[in-house]
Design a protein around this nucleic acid. Structure first.
Lengths: 233, 233
DNA sequence: ACCTGAACACCGTTCAAGT
DNA sequence: ACCTGAACACCGTTCAAGT
């Protein structure tokens, strides 16, 4: 017992409630955050928590808001706009992975927009630098945001899964369901399971290439890269 | 009062339990599926449900398994491999959107692998046809799967959100946080909010183009696009 | 083999009452 | 303004007991 919040007493603060809640969530996930446990941790009656934060749902929301604010800005790195966009996506992913429970909470509460924002600011700038304007530019920004957040959601989920069941090994085993696959190297690669870091980089690069390089109509062609006047210092 | 399961009585079946559970979940989401409500719906005691399905968690798992099995196969459409890959992604998205609660349940239980499978089979084939082999092929398959499922997760979330709060309109309003944006058309497009259908198509196309067309080494930089030796036929 | 009610250990939340 | 205990209406799950 004895809550971890410093001095002995001075009437409960909303901040103290949030702090204690943050600790509980960080350690055991939002599901473990129960009003009664929280009260016990703080050494107060359950009902006084209600006075400070309204109810469980608004407590969680306040927590999310605070954590998102702490995430801070993202600064692009790299020489080309494409590289800088990719760097923003990777940095965003890193931050989301650093707050494993945050993303699920944000997700459940539909606050994605809020979480997008720091990255969105950076992306808007880079996409503009890459020469995109108007709707296509907005789409590029959103595509990267959706891609990144979505990827982390899927990735996190797979990590949390106790033991995938069927499991990719059996699934793609050459003697199993994988027998339809013509390329044994491909079957092996699938059975090996994904390496999220690499997969993410590959995906984002491909997406960004596709978004920034489709100049007018047809895809595939590398088109309009010839800004190299051959003598750039 | 009066469960919806046909005939009057014949001792409870595991199937009947699953059926009733499916109805509840489909109508009100997994959160509304409570053992007691389910029992009431079936006209039995709560405890007899436990005899048939073990506990709530395994009931949900069985439900997921059944629904995933019902999803069936995906048949690619289109002339080029790229188009066919895109068509698989779009079809997968459609199915996931048709079972709005399924995806969240699958997600929470880490059964993504299972849900991936029908689409994965199709994608493996197309990626092979596009000339990819081994690890890059596996990465392409996974990239599209992650992209699709992730996108739907984010999309579903935003749809469920009661009212985004700040809300994109204020966020990107030219007189608000959007004032840093140099391109007013871009700011407007962002304020307008995404059109998921279009955004998804754009994203997947870009991703697939990027995945299938990156010939050898470096990305983006344009660095090695000079296969135009000025006189290539 | 299948079903039952009673009971346990939890929840979030409200309310009247205290200081 | 802030805190309290009692109480309500829910949960999932176990268990001994019935047929």
């Amino acid at each position: 017992m004895s809550g971890g919040s410093g001095s002995v007493r001075a009437s409960l603060t909303r901040e103290q409630v949030l702090d204690a809640a943050a600790v509980l969530v960080k350690q055991q996930g939002p599901r473990a955050l129960t009003m009664r446990k929280l009260a016990a941790e703080l050494g107060t009656a359950v009902t006084s928590i209600y006075w400070h934060v309204g109810n469980r749902e608004s407590l969680l929301e306040a927590l999310v808001e605070r954590t998102v604010a702490e995430l801070g800005d993202l600064t692009p790195r790299g020489r080309t706009p494409a590289a800088r966009v990719v760097s923003v996506a990777r940095a965003l992913r890193r931050r989301l992975l650093d707050h494993p429970h945050l993303i699920a909470m944000v997700h459940e509460r539909g606050l994605t927009e809020r979480m997008f924002q720091p990255a969105a600011r950076a992306l808007v700038h880079e996409v503009h630098a890459a020469g995109l304007r108007g709707t296509p530019a907005a789409e590029a920004v959103r595509a990267v945001l959706f891609q990144t957040v979505g990827f982390v959601l899927v990735e996190r989920n797979r990590a949390r899964a106790p033991a995938q069941r069927p499991g990719e090994q059996e699934l793609w085993d050459v003697r199993g369901a994988g027998q339809g696959v013509q390329d044994p190297a491909l079957a092996r690669a699938l059975a090996r399971g994904p390496q999220p870091e690499k997969l993410f980089t590959v995906s984002v690069r491909a997406l960004v290439d596709g978004l920034l390089n489709s100049p007018r109509s047809s895809p595939t062609t590398g088109g309009d890269v010839d800004s190299r006047t051959s003598g750039a210092s």
